[in-house]
Design a protein around this nucleic acid. Sequence first.
DNA 1: CGATTTGGTCAAGCAGCTTGACCATGTAGT
DNA 2: ACTACATGGTCAAGCTGCTTGACCAAATCG
Lengths: 148, 148
Amino acid sequence: MQNSDAMALFAALLAAAGDLTQRIHDGVTARGFTDLRPAHGFAFARLAPDGATVTDLAVHLGVTKQAASQLVDEIVRKGYAERRPHPEDARARLIVLTGRGWACTRAAEEAAAEVVGGWAELLGEGEVHALRERLARIAPYGPIRPAW
Amino acid sequence: MQNSDAMALFAALLAAAGDLTQRIHDGVTARGFTDLRPAHGFAFARLAPDGATVTDLAVHLGVTKQAASQLVDEIVRKGYAERRPHPEDARARLIVLTGRGWACTRAAEEAAAEVVGGWAELLGEGEVHALRERLARIAPYGPIRPAW
DNA sequence: CGATTTGGTCAAGCAGCTTGACCATGTAGT
DNA sequence: ACTACATGGTCAAGCTGCTTGACCAAATCG
């Protein structure tokens, strides 16, 4: 394994991740959600299952809770989520997706499936699945962060 | 291929790309280059072969030429590159790496090789190579861009 | 040659993040 | 139970890295 091979792998990873991000974002925009940026999508992913607190979101996104709070302000203002009192902690607030937030989440999933479907035509379904499985083995869980 | 599988692949890609970026950056820092951010490394990659103009860099990084020019100001000020008159165009300036810039580039390659070496222990050399090859087939060339 | 394009810089403005201070609620120690 | 501290959240101010807009000098095209 030469050093330059490692850099080539790095470049390919960045290109694939950046391309997929861009194309999902384009797909979401094309489905009518024109007032969002990719960062919002990563917030939705954390909110989707059962909601989350601002602090949860901040950890997930790798930013301060003030920054996460601003982002929540924005998606609430735009009608994608709402702040509710937290059922178990009067200090906290539970941020949950609205119907519009769920619709956008589904749009992102569709867009992602479209792009990945194109990859499957290039590589075959099995190869794409293998790709996912191998990436999962080398990639630690942790805060989502920009590629740089 | 379920929609959620596509999102899982997306998450794995982002995690791998972000993790590799972070660990290369850490490695570069550990080797003594403490005044750089990952974005500078992507500039170095474009400058390394034979130098480049500010406009070349801007296209490569996907930003305006003003932003690229600022970034060049910074790496020049810190001694990693220098502006020279362009041999074939008196309007342009050729940005080339200094010795320090090359040393940093080698440090990044070493750091990348270290991380990818760790991946090879997990997956095997062949699998890592296959990963690179498959990513290369689905990832278009284009401007480097943050994962979101 | 004049007209337009291209490489680069200067200047101003802004979006999204940070740090710092603060309040309300929860949790632990004695 | 009362004090002390930790935790969730917001407000305010500031900074960094980017953008848009205007401009100049050199190259290219008619």
